[in-house]
Amino acid sequence: MARKTPVRGQMAVLHPMRIRADALPLADRMFNLWTLTALMLAFAAVLIAPAFAQDAAPEKPGVISILLEWTPTLAKGFGFNVLISILSMAIGTAMGVVLGVLQVSPLRPVRSIAWLVTQFFRNSPWLVLLFYCILLIPFQIEVFGTTIPFPGWIKAVLGLSLPVMAYMSEYMRGAILSIPTGQWESAESLGFSRRQIMTDVILPQTVKRVLPSWMNLYAVLTMATPLVSIIGVNDVMALTRAALSAEGRVDLLIPMYLYILSWFFIYCYPISAVTRLLERKYSVKL
């Protein structure tokens, strides 16, 4: 550290305060060898420990072989969770962007209603919203003689998209208001209409600002998808319960739920890691 060596006659210099600690590169943070290894060892230990216990009763198959046996079924369920999360996110984002734009409408009634809708859904428990959607939406809708069925999982998608919409609406409102007013003024003086300013100037600039929060929201949503098992959708959670009751073994409970937890972790952790990376990248420059 050359800087620390005192030099004769050197004056004390007040270095500018470091506002933020230097961030580690993404790879170091995400795939830190030690944390990951420790995590994997912990998982392995929990999974294997009961398996050793089973040796006392050799006629029963081991825990690991049972997990592997159920893996294709559970994977289908997990795929369903992912599908539900993606659809809810898409619908919720689309509605949320519109609602967020309405929240900054120059028309007071529009602004107030958009605000009310946002606050209502943002402050409702997700599970209650899910139940509400299940009860509110009919099993099927008849349009011009054709029957359009509404299976439970579609209702679940709609139910989960409501809180996504509300959060997205708030993110959008914040991002729109964070764009300097000079952007509005210069676009206005070039003759753009309000709608054009919004779509051509303001909204494209909000993408960067909203992206980290949006991805974080997606991770949270994915972790909330097992809620749909409560309303009778055959997601990974429902299938896990079914598998457990089919096996009828108490010693399977903890390993199997841990197994599912690790799936969610492996799916969601990279998303939150990339989110942190984006947050750092975009927080530097305005």
């Binding site: 210069s186 676009a187 003759g191």
Partner: peptide, 15 residues
């Protein structure tokens, strides 16, 4: 606005 152009102190270009 077609008749009047305006330039601002902070440039206000679309980034």
């Amino acid at each position: 606005r077609k008749k009047v152009g305006m330039v601002f102190q902070q440039y206000n270009l679309f980034p």
